[in-house]
Write a protein that binds this DNA or RNA. Structure first.
Length: 426
RNA sequence: GGAGGAAUACCCAAGUGGUCGAAGGGGGCGGUUUCGAAAACCGUUAGUGGGGUCAUGCUCCAGCCAGGGUUCGAAUCCCUGUUCCUCCGCCA
């Protein structure tokens, strides 16, 4: 949630910041409504104070055998005077909330304005491998190696899904364990959250009300519940409506969950296989920090994500996203993108973001600073990592002329020492 | 899924319509005592959101799970929801 005080005090700044995010924002209605709100609030509160005073005098009047009728008449007059204002106040407050809660987070000042095309790659690792044999794409490889079964997935579920089979399942599990062990080594706390969440969780994460249509809602649950699109939604709600002691910050969590999204499908025909599906596996990192601590935490998380990809020996790059390509709730995002040879492009395997106060404001996630003052936490999240692009990248980048694939070193111990995945005979 | 019960401040807990910003206890903090500590005793300790004001002060509004309602007045009564507990049923 954007700070309403900032909107009122520096509307031009907010307009300019949102413009960088390609968001056309007119602060006038909010400013007008806020003025009205204050007027009404003061009026209503003055009358309420008077009302309280009169009400408190009634027991004494009764005790001393006096007549309460005059006081009652006075109260009646007050109540009829304030009723309309009270209703309008509620209405105005609801309107303000509706206008503010849909605003995206303000981007950090140093971000480039614009959208996807304005992203700036600033770090590169590895070579874009040139093949001296006919290269296969990951769908072909996964099938010839017996790692993935798309046909049966379509049978038991539908399109946009896949089944990890045999060594494919084990390779997936190896990746997840490789990620998990790395986070544990770095002192992050492991969480396995419920996958079914309530509305407030989506609201705090900043996904609602804007993206209510992008998640899967459960039928027959009242109040309604949805299936998480990322573990971030669960992790960032762990401390909703809490005030954390200063000495417990930063808090570092990670969780493995599948992510369920309606966006699947092809948006591009080349996004075959497991590049984009309704369900994919991801290990997600989330940190809660002080306001001063979030920049360092951000660097730490970017470095962690880089280290994971680098440890696998994959060719990748890091992009600093332009303001407009950052997620709705985020002030800043770096994407780690892995080279997919068959597509000739880099695809996101991790997105590390700093939400600053945006989510904390929505979910009242606070801490007490050294002076005992409550402040909003900063929340950060980052994938570490999503497997659904890493898996194809491994197959494609590490394929050999005979159709086999070399298993990255750090995964072998999770695969019983298997070094090479070989094509299976039909 | 059905039937009951519960939710009060850091914790436990009293309070069933009227000065209740909520008894009492524990804990915390400060002090007396002590060389120091324990014990005892004394004192103190409501956080939060939002207004007003030159005011780290004073003051007003809201606030006893959440949201509505009844009433001049609600922690107390009514409705809805949430969570927890007990019992029954069902079950991977």
């Amino acid at each position: 949630m954007v700070d309403i005080k900032l909107i009122l005090e520096k509307p031009d700044y907010v307009v300019a910041a949102l413009k960088k995010k390609l968001w056309d924002f007119d602060p006038e209605p909010i400013i007008e409504l806020s003025k009205r709100r204050l007027e009404l609030l003061q009026k209503v509160e003055t009358i309420k104070a008077e009302h309280n005073r009169l009400t408190k005098s009634i027991p004494q009047i009764k005790k001393s055998g006096g007549d309460i009728a005059p006081v009652m008449a006075e109260i009646k007059a007050l109540v009829s005077k304030t009723k309309e204002d009270e209703d309008e106040l509620k209405d105005v407050e609801a309107k303000i909330k509706a206008l503010v809660e849909v605003l995206p987070n303000l981007p950090d000042d140093d971000l480039e304005p614009g959208g996807k095309e304005d992203n700036v790659p600033f770090y590169h690792f590895g070579e874009e491998r040139v093949f001296d044999f006919p290269m296969k794409n990951h769908v072909e490889l996964a099938e010839s190696l017996g790692l993935i079964d798309y046909k049966r997935a379509a049978k038991i579920s539908g399109s946009g899904t896949w089944i990890y089979t045999n060594l494919g399942a084990r390779l997936e599990w190896a990746l997840l364990n490789y990620f998990i062990d790395a986070h544990l080594a770095d002192g992050y706390e492991m969480i396995l959250p419920p996958h079914i969440l309530n509305y407030d969780s989506g609201y705090t994460a900043g996904q609602f009300p804007k993206f209510e249509d992008d998640v899967f809602w459960l039928e027959g649950s009242e109040p309604r519940k949805f299936i998480l699109p990322t573990a971030e939604t669960a992790l960032v709600n762990l401390h909703r409506n809490e005030i954390l002691p200063l000495n417990e910050l930063p808090r570092k969590y990670f969780a493995y969950t599948p992510c369920y999204r309606k966006e699947a499908g092809s948006y591009r025909t080349e996004e075959r296989g497991m590049i984009r599906g309704y369900q994919f596996d991801k290990v997600e990192m989330v940190q809660y920090t002080t306001q001063e601590g979030s920049d360092a935490a951000f660097e730490e998380m970017v470095n962690k994500a880089k280290a994971l990809v680098e440890g696998l020996g994959l060719t990748y790059q890091v992009d600093k996203l332009a303001a407009g390509d950052c997620s709705h709730s985020m002030a800043r995002t770096y994407d780690i993108e892995v080279w997919i040879p068959s597509m000739g492009i880099y695809k996101e395997v991790s997105s590390v973001s700093n939400a600053r106060e945006y989510q904390a404001r929505r979910g009242m996630i606070r801490y007490r600073d050294e002076n005992g003052k409550t402040k909003y936490c900063h929340t950060l999240n980052g994938s570490g990592l999503a497997t659904s692009r890493v898996f194809p990248a491994i197959l494609e980048q590490f394929q050999q002329a005979d159709g086999s694939v070399v298993v990255p070193l750090p995964l072998r111990k999770y695969l019983g020492g298997i070094e090479v995945l070989k094509p299976i005979k039909k």
